[in-house]
Structure formats: structure tokens, C-alpha cells
Design a protein around this nucleic acid. Sequence first.
DNA 1: GTTTAGGAGACTGTATACAAGACCTGACAT
DNA 2: ATGTCAGGTCTTGTATACAGTCTCCTAAAC
Lengths: 224, 224
Amino acid sequence: MSDLTLGATHRTLRDEVTNELRRRILSGELPPGERLVEDRLAASLGVSRNPVRESIRVLATEGFVEVVPRLGATVSRLSAEEGEELFDVRMAVEGLAARLAARKRTAASAARLRQVLDHARQAVDEGRLEEVADLNTAFHLAVVEAAGNSYLSLMMKPMLLRAQWVFSRTAAARGPHSWSEHVSLCEAIAAGDEDEAQARAVAHVAAARRSFLTAVRRAKAPND
Amino acid sequence: MSDLTLGATHRTLRDEVTNELRRRILSGELPPGERLVEDRLAASLGVSRNPVRESIRVLATEGFVEVVPRLGATVSRLSAEEGEELFDVRMAVEGLAARLAARKRTAASAARLRQVLDHARQAVDEGRLEEVADLNTAFHLAVVEAAGNSYLSLMMKPMLLRAQWVFSRTAAARGPHSWSEHVSLCEAIAAGDEDEAQARAVAHVAAARRSFLTAVRRAKAPND
DNA sequence: GTTTAGGAGACTGTATACAAGACCTGACAT
DNA sequence: ATGTCAGGTCTTGTATACAGTCTCCTAAAC
């Protein structure tokens, strides 16, 4: 997952385990509803149960995992409804993020946004489609970071990953990603136009929402 | 172990420890910047280090605690900036929550909102001022619950607690709480008026934001 | 045939033990 | 006086051990 990793430097086993479990969940290796048996995970990762337990608690707080005391943890179940819920929240929060990013624009943040867009363009050109979803998430994360609001960042990181997860698991990846929307959002932010930036962000998420809903309706069979 | 049992049905020590540590942080018993030494906390709670460690990870994910590998955990430091950041996010998210609550209004959720308001009125009348802050948070939580968006709830619970924390720690509690704003918000939700509900919610948070900022400026000495 | 008591196995929750890193102190050298 | 290096101590990270509980299967009773 390139430079998307949440906990930048993996210094402890626990962080590695958390990232690895999150990766397995996002990739579908651990499908929704799958039981997370501490012993087995520990064995499969070559560690003891302690780091696994702590990871599971963190993932539960992030919403990827559900824990019932004495019964164990399972990967959260996904549904089209949850996808809709997520998009509702994202429209509100990413709108704010874009507005703040425009307000507090800096050369560094603009450069970062353009860098992600460049990478995305490259990935699309070279047909590395698996990376596109990651880069999309990376772009949205970059917008959030550009907003310079630490709580917003704390909140949005798991949320964007979860959105990516729901999207990839319930809807088919919508082929050619609409990068033009990203570009115009990036421009609005770089220009410091708050209203425009917010509008672009909301519109973009709304478009993704519609695309998600039609994909779900077409598929008619969400994995639950 | 001492009587940790706070309220609801805590099944596991770990949950009790999490709630107790969160309570100590919110109450100021564990002030911002305080180091959280696992041994000492475990001893003071009469448990082993394991439940404490898992709790600390959860609190870190929620943003109450900062963990640096190998160096340990500290209670997050607060600043007026963080308060502002928090209010920015709240305006966006609680506006959405109020809108959704109005859209999906049910008899049960309206009753719940009125119940909290009644309790608040009672508490104010009887001078139980310590409870007022809790009831304020409870009201905001009830609005979020009424929105019927599970991810919104997951996200907002720690956030509202954190807002209460920042507010109580950096600004003085603003004496007579403006319950009239809550009442009109409640009415707008019960009436199903989405625009009005959102506007009320945003205005209410904005008012709290202003009150927070003036209090901070007056105090001139945030605890850092 | 259905239902229910009992018990074995599996898994979580909690405690304890051990290893390794970080910090502090004080002596010694420059 | 300043720097730095060794040793000890404190604390975290990880592993292992044990106890309680839940599940499921079996078997006996009706």
C-alpha cells in the first residue's frame, strides 16, 4: 500500500500486526463476518496473542472489527446501507476539509496534492489499476491533511480506509476513475477559493455516492 | 479490585479500565501531559498490565492519549487551537446529524431528546451543576443517535467526549447553559424541518465556539 | 423422535515472567 | 567545566501460563 501506511514507522510488532490485519481486512483476505481467533492470527503472524489482542481493540475502535466480550471478534459486516451512511458523513466532512484546505493553503500542501495526482495519472497510464484505489484514498487523505486540523485527520484516516473498503467490497471498482474531479478540486484549493473547494469536494463525494448506489443496485447481491 | 463499576454492565476488566481511565482524563485527575505508566495504573486499579495496555491503545485511537513506542503513553495535551479544530469539525458533523435526525425522525428519538432536556432542566433547577456538562453531551449524543447513522455514532462519541473535555479544561464552564438553543433544535428535529434543524445545530455549535474562544482569551493561560 | 443434562474442547480474559530499550547518575577523561 | 561512557534502574514490548466461560457434541431420559 505504498506510502499510505497509517503508522509511518513500524517499530513495534503491535503496529505491524495492526497494519497487517487492516490490510487483510481491506483486501478481502479476511472477509466481513470472519471470526478473528486470536490464537490462529498469532500463529499465522508468528507472534504471541498480546500484540494481536491490542490490534483487535484498535481495529474495533476504528470500526473494522466488532468485539463481543467472551465471544470474540469478527470482521465488521458491510452492507449497502453502511456505504450510504459513510458517504453521507464524507460529504459533510470532506466538504469542510476542502474548505479549510483552501483557507490554509500552503505551497507544501498544494505540492503534495499535485504529487498524488501525478502518481495517479502515471498509475492509470501504466495500467496499474490495483493502485488506483489506494491513490484515490491517498488524495482524499492529502486534502484532509492540507486542512491542518489534527482532529479531522485522526477521524478521517480510518474513515477513508473504511470507505475504500466498503466500496471495493460491495460495488465493483468503477473503471476509469474520474480524476478530472480531483484535478479541479485541487485547483480550487490551490487558488484558495473556499466555496468552490467545498462545492467541488461535496460534488465529488456525491458523484461517488451515486456511482456506488447504482453499482450496488446492479449487483443486487451485496455480500452479507 | 476497588469499586470501578461505573454504570452500565461492564463485563470485562478491560472495559472498566477503559472507562475509568477515560473518566480520570475527562475529570482532570489525569491532566494533559501526564505520563501513563502501565505498572502504576495497573496497581492503582488493582489489575494487571494487560487490561491497562489494551485500554491505552483504545484511548489513543480515540485521541485522548498519545503513545510513542518504547517511550510510553501520555494524556494528550490540549490547546485552544485544538478546541477550535474540534468546533470546526463539530459544526459540520452535527449539522449533518441534525439534518438526518429531522429526516428520519421517529417518536422514540423525539422522546429521547425531550427526556434528556427534562433531565437537564431538573438538574439546573436543583443546582446539580456538575451534571449539566454531562447532560449537554448526552443531548448532542442523542441527536447523533437520532440520525440513525451508525458510523456517525461511532465517530461522534469520542469526539463529543473530547469536546467536553477540551471545553472544561481550557475554558471555564459557562454558567447558565443555553438550553433554549437545545429546545429549539429539538423542536426543529421533531417537526422534521431538515434545513431548520441543521441551521439550529450549526448555530448552536458556533455559539459554543464563540463562548469557548472568549473564555480562552479571557483566561489567557491555557494549560500547556 | 425430541429434548435435555453433562462433559470435552476451544477460546477469551487476566496474570505473571522475561527480554530489551531508554533514561539517569556519576565517575573519568579532556 | 564540559563531554562521554559505563552501570544501574525504570519502563515498555512480547511471550507464556492459567482460569473461567462458551459451544458443541454426545448420550440418556421421556
